[in-house]
Simulated assay, not measured.
Amino acid sequence: MNIELKGRTAIITGSTAGIGRATAEGLARAGASVVINGRGEARVDEAVRQMRQAFPGSDISGIAADLSTAEGAETFFAQAPEADILVNNLGTAVLRDFADTTDEDWLSIFQINVMSGVRMTRHYLPNMVRQGWGRVVFVSSESALNIPKEMIDYGVTKTAQLAVSRGLAESVAGTGVTVNAVVPGPTRSEILSNWMAGQAKDQGITQEEAEQAFLKAARPTSLIQRFATTDEVANMIVYVCSEQASATTGAALRVDGGVVRFVA
């Protein structure tokens, strides 16, 4: 399959590292003009520099903006008013006990994981509909289906993304625009990888050993019995952004390594 996205502009939120960065690289490889995003100017500039070096001749730019706020989103829109492809990847997670999760914690993670995608889609979706083509992808998590007891707030936000994604797909039926969610399992993304590295250091073991211990304790249903790579998740995202995925919409596409134990 040859995915060709030349002439398309793709925005990927939270894309200086991890799944977002791998997705930005995959879309650039397919010929799309890519806009990456992060909160800090220095980190965005460095990511743009690295990507331009890796993909000479590609149209790659970056916008530093905190999309968890309405003001940050407006800053972003002023610099990138239109897009053909939107990947709502921005997200965070914090390990904490439910009893210790404050109202402020709940509201903060909801702003980052849910409202950032709501704001971005609300802005870019209408023009996609007008032009008769567009792709919107929400990067959710298997935690949306298997709510983790140590991150209940995170699980709730990831379930909310699935609901938003499906509802939006219904709202643009027949327009040529597709809206989907991708559901990764444990992945060597920046947040989880850093956490695993910390666990490994504390226990005096390798990171791979720490990952295996995590899978056995918290995700024993994994069929691949390892963490996925960010590229493996990005491959699915790039596909659903393509012309070839024109009949796929309203879906929650699992890249979870078989963690979720039901047929769907």
Rank of each mutant, 00 (worst) to 15 (best):
Thr249Val: 03
Gly14Leu: 04
Val238Trp: 02
Asn127Ile: 02
Ala83Gly: 07
Arg21Glu: 15
Gln131Gly: 03
Val263Asp: 10
Gln207Phe: 00
Gln212Tyr: 00
Arg261Trp: 00
Gln203Ala: 15
Val87Phe: 06
Met115Val: 05
Gly91Cys: 01
Ala228Gln: 06
Val136Cys: 05
Ile3His: 01
Ser108Ala: 14
Val34Lys: 09
Ser242Gly: 13
Val240Asp: 04
Gly31Cys: 10
Leu107Ser: 06
Val34Tyr: 12
Ser222Cys: 11
Glu104Thr: 08
Asp45Phe: 01
Leu125Gln: 14
Ala30Tyr: 08
Met115Leu: 14
Thr121His: 05
Arg188Phe: 10
Ala24Glu: 08
Ser165Phe: 11
Phe77Ala: 05
Ser165Tyr: 12
Gly185Glu: 08
Thr248Gln: 13
Trp195Ile: 11
Asp84Tyr: 04
Leu67Gln: 06
Lys149Val: 13
Thr92Asp: 14
Val259Met: 09
Ala22Tyr: 01
Asp103Phe: 03
Leu27Gly: 04
Thr121Asn: 08
Ser61Cys: 06
Arg130Thr: 11
Ile112Val: 15
Glu190Gly: 03
Cys241Thr: 09
Thr101Ser: 15
Arg52Ile: 12
Ala30Cys: 15
Gln199Ala: 10
Ala197Thr: 12
Gly174Lys: 03
Leu215Trp: 07
Leu215His: 13
Val137Ser: 07
Glu170Tyr: 08
Glu142Ser: 01
Val129Trp: 04
